[in-house]
């Protein structure tokens, strides 16, 4: 299944494409081929959902993996080791995965800034779905925070008690100046498989989803992909203005 997505991001923007459901390793091979092309095919935002899979980076910890080995044996959910940083995580149907394959050198090369822009795009997407979400400085990702928690004072206890919940994970790799990976936004994802792991190496983190937050059926994943295409492309395009120096001043004047 594939679909046309209009990002509205202008000619210098990003081609967004919805790939439907696609295997993790297949998508990884696709990302790698695009990165090998060094962005000559243009910047791309791939939106998709994965078949159930656990993935772990090189810093995946032993205790997490040991427990996981039993789960994967019982449920037949594969575990894939990949060449990224970060710990183990889970992907599955109902999670909107966005792989942003862009030439970071053309965009100023600031890797943290890129992460912040991805967060901004996901937060705007969630806003359009009536979910108020925010950043947690120092903890890359997108979080939903209970109304009685002061977002400037969030701590591990808030996380452990589920008063701050993670709704989207973000992580990238940069290969020869091209970004890979991106975000994974839980829309209507079955959160149970996360119980088998310590997501992202953060013990005590509670994962949540759009449906858990709104207590209502979420729009179809393709519809969410369209919304995300607009907002993420816009967030990454704003970055260009932001790094454009004097021209940016004129834009914002």
């Amino acid at each position: 299944m594939t679909a046309h997505i209009d990002t509205g991001a202008g000619a210098a923007g990003i081609e967004a494409r919805f790939l439907g459901r696609i295997g993790f390793t297949e998508a990884l091979a696709l990302q790698e081929s695009i990165v090998r092309e060094q962005g000559r095919g243009g910047d791309v935002l791939l939106l998709l959902e994965h078949d159930p899979v656990y993935t772990t980076g090189r810093s995946g910890r032993g205790e997490n993996l040991g427990r996981l080995a039993r789960v994967t044996a019982e449920d037949g959910v594969p575990l894939v080791r990949i060449g990224r940083g970060g710990d183990v995580t889970y992907h599955g149907p109902g999670q909107l995965v966005g792989y942003a394959l862009v030439d970071l050198r053309k965009r100023g090369g600031d890797v943290h800034r890129f992460l912040r822009e991805l967060e901004a795009g996901v937060i705007a997407t969630l806003g359009a779905l009536d979910v108020a979400a925010r950043r947690w400085p120092g903890r890359t990702g997108v979080w939903v925070v209970d109304a009685d928690v002061d977002p400037t004072m969030m701590d591990d206890e808030d996380m452990a008690r589920g008063r701050v919940r993670k709704i989207a994970s973000i992580g990238i790799a940069v290969r020869r100046g091209m970004t890979m990976h991106g975000f994974a936004l839980n829309v209507a994802l079955d959160l149970a498989p996360f119980a088998a792991i310590v997501p992202c190496g953060l013990s005590g983190v509670h994962m949540t989803s759009v449906e858990s937050e709104t207590r209502a059926p979420a729009p179809a994943l393709e519809a969410v992909a369209r919304i995300a295409a607009q907002h993420v492309a816009a967030a990454l395009t704003r970055r260009e203005h932001g790094t454009a120096g004097p021209a940016a001043d004129r834009v914002h004047a």
């Binding site: 299944m1 594939t2 679909a3 046309h4 997505i5 209009d6 990002t7 509205g8 991001a9 202008g10 000619a11 923007g13 081609e15 967004a16 494409r17 919805f18 790939l19 439907g20 696709l30 081929s33 695009i34 090998r36 092309e37 000559r40 095919g41 243009g42 791309v44 791939l46 492309a233």
Partner: peptide
């Protein structure tokens, strides 16, 4: 020509360059 010389993107589905 550019698309054929950078063919990975051909595997993807629909395109729009908005």
């Amino acid at each position: 020509k550019r698309r054929l010389e950078n063919p990975a993107a051909l595997l993807l589905g629909a395109v729009s360059r908005a």
